[in-house]
Design a protein around this nucleic acid. Structure first.
Length: 762
DNA sequence: CACGACCACATTTTT
DNA sequence: TGTGGTCGTG
């Protein structure tokens, strides 16, 4: 134990050894948050305060859950079993499998990922003759998900106008259809579990009694439903209440757009009567100037719990700032700087290039490609999202749950087997008439269509029969064969990669089986009755299995694997392993760290993004995003922006981001002359004027529209007494009629008479 | 049913 | 600009 606690700083130690009461840990970036979380668990167990089975630790990502798990098994020589560590969704899946009957779900319910959900909705709209212009599938999906994220069923949603009433109606239809097909979406996993536990008293009390310590990672990212879920799990307020140990950082809350509610942090403090609030402010990651920048920037936000990071690492290098004349020049500058870092011995994988939106990566990728520097882009397509994998999975889904119409439609004619649109239509009519799934309706379709459909059903049945006693990887192999997916891709020109991926699917199944303890031989699964894990009884004497029974007891290997495919989309394995520079959005950089970080495109409209600029809360979230970006850097930080940028096929003229004005002057080193607004006096010329003559001329030629005075040109920076700094974006008319569209950033776009407006060049 | 033409669309994302 | 989706034709 001495070992366990040694090397913790006083705040960390205090957090780890808190008494068994609810606590809120405000953990700044790079303050050793995961360490505190895992050490807390290990300490609780080692001091005998709780058995592993009394631990529930919740994360948002599989990666975080795995990280916690592996650190824990390094700390605790034996006991990681029995602890519940996982994502909200993973844990809910487990609970719903164990209690599927009480939750009103088939044992083999399947999980829709967001792609599946969208096509499901499109199908729903079509089946109900809804105009998808008036009710766009994406809008409906957003509507449904945000309702569920707030814990609301259709009946509970407040429909205040016709449009909303219609959406609510569609939400209801959607849920009914999901129920018929035996599928649940991501939000449903949580909502169902929540409803299950709130309605089922014995079950609720069982878990509340069991989980003495509930630990939550990234608490600032919880949505309303997740918060309610936690309250229920922990038994907040009742005799059985467990202690909730919530770790989060309000300054790193960047997911409001998907329902995260930072307000949960203060709600938690209040509702759980938190007496122990500990701030982890010692930063072990970044050098001084970088940390100062982060601190001073975030101080501009009003709604904060309040926190200031400090470091012992010394000031380190200044933050370098570059103003480029174009996005291309910006990219080239990054590459020059990166090259010199590499020359000085830096690893490429220790250099990250961050941007606000994915569209910005193209130019940078192009420059990297031209310079022959290996790079890796995050956020690409993941393994289980690839089309060929989805197809193979759909066959497996049909074998496990034939009522999954989405899976049916995906592969009924893929590879093609002569089942065209009209056959499908016939089938859909039959299914509607029968009130059944497509699969079940096949026998009601006659004629030629009926025959080919029946053959498809035979294919699925045959696959099921042939594989019923085989281990999962064998099963997958046979399905790939019987479905003729492999043969189909062999005839395709681009098929080689796809075949390779399909073969990887067999490997994935092998790996899954060994990791989840399904064993290589015949599946252990034989239904709940055989389980030794029966712990309690329902009122009517039926058994309830605790959901921590071994996975093979809760579900078949196939069901488990299909859940796994939905819940863990896998890596995007592009260029993995190589020493490559890292390109990603600021969002996906959260939780990572690098020796050197470039934050690019720091322009008004881009970062902060224009869509966020309407409300103050939007700007504050952008600022937190910037805070996250800055705190990714250990030793070197580079900030860049550009006067010109190609976006959506059009050249944009942006002003530099307001964030520059919120950073400490003394920590910055401007590599290009900083332009000062002229009314402050002490005006400096634009870096643009320092560009090589040819470049300036080229740009000038491109931008100049005839204007008799020739005084104003597009791209010219201007200063206005009221609106401050701006950039001329367009000029219309000429002579005394000439008017200019000027982008004043925070003041927006203005149309000003050039002969009247009091403009100064800057 | 495969392919090409055309059009709308374009923060951020994990489960 | 560049992609993804839908539609019409061979």
């Amino acid at each position: 134990m001495q070992n366990l606690l040694h090397n913790l700083n006083p705040e960390q130690l205090a957090a780890v050894t808190l008494p068994a009461q609810s606590a809120l840990i405000l953990a700044g970036a790079g303050s050793g948050k995961t360490r505190v979380l895992t050490t807390r668990i290990a300490w609780l167990i080692q001091t005998g305060q709780v058995s592993p089975g009394g631990i529930l630790a919740v994360t948002f990502t599989n990666k975080a859950a795995k990280e916690m798990m592996s650190r824990l098994s390094a700390m605790l020589p034996i006991n990681t079993r029995g602890m519940w560590i996982g994502t909200f969704h993973g844990l809910c899946n487990r609970l719903l499998r164990a209690h599927h009957r009480d939750a009103g779900l088939p044992q083999t319910f399947q999980i829709l990922d967001s792609g599946d959900q969208l096509s499901f909705i499109k199908r729903l709209l079509k089946a109900n003759n809804i105009d998808d212009e008036k009710f766009p599938p994406k809008t409906l999906m957003y509507f449904i998900n945000s309702a569920k994220d707030q814990g609301l069923r259709a009946a509970q949603v407040d429909a205040y106008d016709d449009f909303n009433r219609k959406m609510v109606g569609l939400y209801d239809l959607y849920d009914a259809q999901c129920q018929r097909e035996g599928v649940v979406d991501f939000a449903e996993l949580l909502l169902r579990t929540y409803e299950l536990l709130s309605r089922n008293q014995p079950l609720r009390e069982h878990y509340q009694e069991r989980f003495r310590h509930v630990l939550v990672d990234e608490f600032q990212d919880t949505n309303d439903l997740q918060y309610k879920w936690l309250k229920l799990m922990a038994g907040a307020g009742n005799r059985r209440a467990g202690a909730v140990f919530a770790v989060g950082d309000d300054d790193q809350s960047i997911y409001a757009f998907r329902g995260a509610n930072v307000g949960n942090m203060s709600a938690f403090e209040r509702e759980f009567e938190v007496k122990n609030l500990i701030k982890l402010e010692q930063n072990y990651r970044s050098h001084g100037h970088i940390l100062d920048s982060a601190n001073i920037l975030i101080a501009n936000n009003s709604k904060r719990l309040g926190k200031n990071l400090r470091t012992d690492a010394g000031h380190g290098e200044l933050v370098r700032v570059m103003e480029a004349s174009s996005d291309i020049q910006e990219a080239n500058w990054i590459i020059e700087e990166a090259k010199s870092l590499i020359r000085e011995g830096s690893l490429r994988s220790e250099i990250a290039i961050l941007y606000r939106s994915n569209a910005q990566s193209r130019v940078i990728e192009h420059a990297l490609f031209t310079a022959n520097i290996p790079y890796r882009v995050y956020g690409g397509q993941r393994f289980f999202e690839r089309a060929e994998i989805k197809h193979a999975i759909a066959y497996l889904q049909l074998m496990d749950n034939p009522h999954n119409d989405s899976a049916f439609l995906r592969v009924v004619n893929f590879p093609t087997r002569g089942i065209g649109a009209r056959s499908i239509e016939q089938l859909q009519d039959a299914a509607r008439a029968q009130g059944s799934s497509l699969y079940a309706a096949v026998r009601h379709v006659g004629g030629k269509a009926g025959t080919s459909l029946a053959n498809f059903v035979k294919l699925i049945e045959g696959a099921r029969f042939e594989t019923q006693n085989l281990p999962l990887p064998e099963m997958v192999k046979i399905v790939l064969d019987l479905s003729t997916l492999i043969t189909h891709y062999q005839t395709e020109k681009e098929g080689a990669d796809r075949i390779e991926n399909l073969e990887q699917l067999v490997n994935a199944a092998t790996l899954f089986v060994s990791e989840e303890g399904f064993g290589k031989e015949a599946p252990a699964f034989s239904g709940p009755a055989s389980s030794a894990a029966v712990l309690l009884e329902n009122g009517d004497g039926t058994a309830i299995i605790d959901a921590d029974a071994a996975l093979p007891t809760l579900m078949s290997p196939l069901s488990a694997f299909l859940s796994h495919a939905s819940l863990e989309a896998g890596d995007n394995q592009a260029q993995a392993g190589q020493d490559a520079m890292q390109l990603m959005t600021v969002h996906s950089a959260k939780g990572l760290e690098f020796d050197a970080v470039f934050i690019t495109g720091l322009e008004e409209g881009l970062f902060p993004h224009e869509n966020s600029a309407q409300e103050e809360s939007g700007v504050e979230e952008e600022r937190r995003l910037m805070y996250v970006a800055i705190t990714r850097a250990r030793k070197r930080l580079y900030l860049s922006f550009s006067q010109t940028r190609m976006l959506h096929g059009q050249t944009r003229y942006n002003m530099r981001s307001r964030f520059f004005d919120e950073l400490p002057e003394e920590s910055l080193k401007w590599l290009s002359p900083k332009i000062q607004p002229s009314w402050f006096g002490n005006s400096k010329k634009s870096a643009w004027d320092d560009a090589p003559i040819e470049e300036s001329n080229r740009i000038a030629q491109q931008m100049t529209r005839q204007s008799p005075s020739m005084t104003w040109r597009i791209g010219q920076g201007v200063a206005h007494p009221k609106f401050g700094e701006g950039v001329i974006v367009n000029i219309e008319g000429s002579g005394t009629n000439a008017r200019a569209h000027i982008n004043f950033g925070q003041f927006g776009m203005k149309l000003l008479d050039l002969s009247v407006a009091k403009l100064e060049k800057i």
